[in-house]
């Protein structure tokens, strides 16, 4: 089932690309959700030949949490904050896409130098998971709106997750659950924080928070 796992990873790469180029926040929420679900589906597809209860339970949990619950929480925040579009980001969208291509090329280079050649994993999994981490970090740095920074955090987490699943195979159940719980709480807290920022200041640009005085 390596082909299916490969396809999941390439689809994740597509979501990265659109996330880099879109200003629409609802689309962003949906894409982040889709990417999370794809990460869960990757876990399943990569181990589909010997499915264990552990793998089944974990990928189902991830699909439900990242694919359904997180988008729900974020969409609700978005609705309350009454925001539709990201205002001018620090890095314009076309430039973001071009930088994304540079990041993709460098993650291919990095992954070619990692000593993981002996493992039977889909060839695109490692470079694209590294690219996903880069994209997440980039979104946190290059966007103004608090919600887009939450996207960045989630994309980063998806990248780390697929990277871990690709090179380590199975991690202890407790570790995975712990990470998932952390992300869950983080999304919840960030959702609330974004809502409060936008209610206090009628916008959610984080750069303007730095001029606050008491």
């Amino acid at each position: 089932m390596n082909e299916v796992a490969d396809l999941m990873v390439v689809l994740m790469a597509m979501t990265n690309l659109i996330l880099l180029g879109t200003a629409r926040l609802t689309l962003g929420v949906r894409l982040v959700g889709a990417q999370g679900a794809l990460a869960g589906a990757y876990m399943f597809a990569a181990n589909a030949e010997h499915p264990t209860v552990h793998v089944l339970a974990l990928s189902a949990l991830i699909i439900v949490a990242k694919g359904l619950v997180f988008p729900k929480v974020l969409l609700r925040t978005l609705e309350k904050a009454e925001a539709r579009h990201e205002m001018e980001p620090y890095v314009p969208y076309s430039a973001s896409i071009l930088l994304g291509m540079v990041m993709l090329a460098s993650s291919v280079w990095v992954s070619s130098r990692l000593p993981i050649a002996g493992l039977t994993i889909p060839p695109s999994a490692v470079p694209i998971s590294i690219w996903t981490m880069f994209t997440g970090l980039f979104l946190v740095v290059a966007r103004r709106a608090a919600l887009t920074q939450v996207f960045g955090y989630l994309v980063l987490e998806n990248g780390i997750y697929v990277f871990g699943a690709a090179i380590a195979g199975e991690m202890p159940f407790l570790v995975e659950m712990g990470a998932l719980l952390d992300v869950f709480v983080a999304v919840f807290v960030m959702g609330v924080a974004v809502f409060h920022i936008s209610r206090e200041f009628e916008h959610m640009d984080t750069d303007r928070l730095s001029v606050l005085r008491d």
Binding site: L17, M101, A105
Partner: peptide, 12 residues
């Protein structure tokens, strides 16, 4: 932006 995106698909 659309065309750069299409180009990015090609690069990918």
């Amino acid at each position: 932006q659309l065309l750069v995106g299409a180009g990015a698909l090609g690069v990918m």
